[in-house]
Write a protein that binds this DNA or RNA. Structure first.
Lengths: 322, 322
DNA sequence: AATAATATTGGAAACTTTTCCAAATTTATA
DNA sequence: TATAAATTTGGAAAAGTTTCCAATATTATT
């Protein structure tokens, strides 16, 4: 049906090996033959069947990207740069939104085992058994696995500490923490640890809501927090969605920001997408994305990689702190 | 290296054909043999090499999704549902952000020709030559091609008309239009047409900025508009980013919204991304995504499809109109 | 001009699967 | 029990590449 390398070979009057060499332009082919072959290719409108190519080479040059949900500023931005960086190395990216369903993770592992993709980036996930994971080229963001899965993260602990102290130095007397607890071992937990440490250091009471939650629960959680700790005058909010919901709710309750209540969020700012002007810890999403792709490609080629990469955040001042 | 169907056959003491039949569980295989084979598969930890499978079947079960940029509420939401719907049919989705580079489009066409993907969804694009397009299973959103590319769109003309009249009925005397002109034949142009028609109908002056622009130009374009047409008391803003930027700029200029200036946007509302509460025409993104995937899969299987599918928008009242 | 060294070429084998045909086995029928 | 019919099975062929080895052609060296 479609023209194959054989057709080209016949048309050009050469062997298939020669045609292959021309396609992959290897040097060892005479000038006149090369020309003949190129002409034949053009004449027959040949294009290589990459399924056969991949089978022969045993590589797909595709990686999978697993995010909880693509329709979210953080993950969309991450996906953008993952795709861009992967492209630089000749890899395509298959997108998978896990929607908190663990099957999606096993699905990807199966895809790797079945040679449908060469490897995967797991941004967050819920799987507990890890036997299969170790056999596959997988890298991660924020999640801390066993020893075999390299990951990239940001300086959660330091950044949170700095954020909290910033509010305290500007007069906050009762400082709260609101977040969504990860289901698995994640560097995001460092934010909670930092909070507890700072409260201890300043001898302040713990005002924290940090439970495992579903996407969509934000309003309830925030209302809960604001009722329970109505008297806080400084809050650290972990994550974009929570920060947006929290801000809105606080305003609605008549809290004056920042005079009456200061807010610092982690990931609270995405200039391009919202008009919010929140003081925020900003993660180096682009660098995290590019680095995680580079790690994965190294892993695919069985090269050595560092196990943990920590990148610096930026503390961005906005209108929600004094 | 890896265990193949041959190894399994040898281990189970049967022929490769039989193993294949078991894997794809066809009925014509005896109960005892089936059991033997399944045991062998488990014992050898066999998993099928899907590259070989795809080569043999001549289908990849992958589709490409080309968006201008994934890091944008509209396209991210679309991608989310495209992935979900494709998954229902057993297809994976390769994500490509074109970033307004025409090469990305030809790249995808090449991928189709090279049998790396079975087809593609083009959300918007810039390509002018269409010869190759017609040979490939491609569907589109909003873009109107020749006769061979089915597409899905929303009722741009009606929705815009309705939005404009809504403001006029509530007292707007001087109504403007601000948008980003598509580079190619797109249903988005219907918004401009609706504006011109309504202005003619009400005998109002044209206050319009609607030029081809780059991502990032929004601030300049908005400033331009607000200077040129400082006296408008109603504006239709086309697209999410523009609407956010416009709102912010108008507030900064001290315009009172909606008393002094009403705003209706097309696509101005994405709850998950921003807290803005704008009166807006909301596109049925989920349905558009699902429909476009269904169209593509039909095209891949050479089934008949309708050329143009128009879905209804919703007019959502917010705080930016009286 | 003869030989050695190098460059180019052809084509079989391999990659792993599905599919098809013929052969072998089982079951049903008389 | 013999035959017909139906079911199950084995294995070669095909899908379209790349790669390797041996063979041929070219160029350099004496």
């Amino acid at each position: 049906m479609e023209t194959t390398i054989k057709d080209v070979a016949k048309y050009a009057g050469v062997g298939v090996g020669t045609v292959s060499r021309v396609i992959n332009n290897e040097k060892a082919v005479g000038e006149k033959t090369r020309k003949k072959v190129l002409e034949a290719m053009k004449a027959l409108n040949y294009s290589r069947n990459n399924m056969a190519f991949k089978l022969r080479k045993n590589e797909t040059r595709i990686i999978a990207l697993l995010v909880p949900i693509i329709n979210h500023p953080f993950f969309a931005k991450l996906a953008y740069y993952v795709e861009d960086e992967a492209g630089k190395f000749g890899y395509s990216v298959i997108l998978v939104s896990s929607q908190q369903r663990v099957e999606k993770e096993t699905e990807i592992i199966t895809k790797i085992m079945h040679r449908e993709v060469d490897g995967a980036v797991f941004v967050t996930h819920y799987m507990h058994e890890e036997e299969d994971l170790n056999k596959c080229p997988i890298v991660s963001i924020d999640r801390t696995f066993g020893d075999n899965i390299p990951y990239v993260t940001s300086d959660n602990y330091d950044a949170t500490k700095k954020a909290l102290k910033y509010m305290i130095e500007r007069g906050a007397k009762r400082v709260g923490f609101i977040g969504s607890k990860p289901l698995v071992n994640s560097e995001v937990l460092e934010r909670e640890r930092a909070y507890l440490d700072v409260m201890a250091e300043y001898n302040m009471p713990i005002c924290m809501v940090n439970e495992v939650m579903q996407h969509g629960d934000e309003k309830v959680v925030v209302a809960d927090f604001l009722e329970k700790y109505a008297d806080v005058d400084g809050v650290f909010v972990s994550g974009y969605t929570l920060s947006q919901v929290f801000y809105e709710a606080a305003i609605k309750l008549g809290r004056k920001i920042p005079d009456d209540l200061q807010i610092v969020s982690y990931d609270g700012i995405f200039k391009q997408w919202s008009m919010s002007n929140m003081t925020s810890v900003e993660q180096p999403i682009e660098e995290m994305a590019r680095e995680v792709v580079r790690l994965l490609i190294k892993k695919i080629h069985n090269e050595e990689t560092s196990q943990r990469t920590v990148l610096n955040t930026q503390f961005v001042l906005g209108a929600t702190t004094k």
